[in-house]
Design a protein around this nucleic acid. Sequence first.
DNA 1: GATTTTATGTCAGCCTTGTTGACTTTCCAA
DNA 2: TTGGAAAGTCAACAAGGCTGACATAAAATC
Lengths: 169, 169
Amino acid sequence: MSAVGGAAQGGESLLFLTDEQLRKGIEAMFFAYRGFTADPDRILENHAYGRAHHRAIHFINRQPGLTVNTLLSVLGVTKQSLNRVLRTLVEDGLVESRVGRRDKRERHLFLTEKGAALERELSDAQRARMRAAYRAAGPAAVAGFRQVLEAMMDPDLRRFYQMMRDGGA
Amino acid sequence: MSAVGGAAQGGESLLFLTDEQLRKGIEAMFFAYRGFTADPDRILENHAYGRAHHRAIHFINRQPGLTVNTLLSVLGVTKQSLNRVLRTLVEDGLVESRVGRRDKRERHLFLTEKGAALERELSDAQRARMRAAYRAAGPAAVAGFRQVLEAMMDPDLRRFYQMMRDGGA
DNA sequence: GATTTTATGTCAGCCTTGTTGACTTTCCAA
DNA sequence: TTGGAAAGTCAACAAGGCTGACATAAAATC
């Protein structure tokens, strides 16, 4: 692997990063993300749902009882956009929306058994690809993968991500 | 980093991959991709273009003279979808479409000076984030990052990606 | 030379998923 | 008790996917 040379370049950096190397990283993200979403997308077609539903289901599963507002921040969409998705999921009996006990304005979101079943179907497929990639690349590569991705996140999202890591289900 | 334990698990695998670790990888992809597209998205807003235009511009820059059909395969969209984007780029004088010399059915795509200028603006921003992430994570992490992403791609796209790596501009 | 296939472009219409803006209801907290 | 936050809803719109149908030119094949 000659993706990154170790040569020091001036005093500023420890890495010798050519534009070409950076461009390859950009393309790797693009192509890998396509693969990343391909399997769930195929499953969602059969259920007449889209990626937006998948994302909502994923995070509701991760943090059962999270509020709509929290989910809004995590997903980075408007409440109108999320509401459309959430409404169909509630109507179809995949998600339950419970009024908050302490603050009754808030709605706490939970997967029903039916919702959990779809979540499993989706994440089984996505994890299978992830597992295969991890195995092909090896443990050291996986650690690096996670480090770079974390460094690419916006700070707010990184905090979210790390909270989920530490506290996660 | 305790993201991945090195313990051998039976004879089947070298990695001990819990569901939790895989889920964290999935979330890392999701949040990192948001960051990955954030800077170009902001720039594109000012020019009244979208991500679809960015993708076309990126690959035309990478492989000047590529045909419409090739670009179609790389992007994985329908010709109608691509055509809409390409038409506006040609009309606005960012992309030039030249009839093929050997095969006159083909159109070869090139960036004009104006197109190259926008490409630079977009990729400068994206590379800056990439560079920062690479520096924060270090050379070993970068190699691992690329390995895992490559392993996540669909085989067809992986071939494309590797071709661009070897032959690339 | 006639026919078929390929590459491209285009029109029309549809869907998902994002957006903004306006408005209502609920209800916590100062 | 009132201001403002949380949530929901309606309407309208845009980007960017999709399918299907059709046109044209040129290459390839029979």
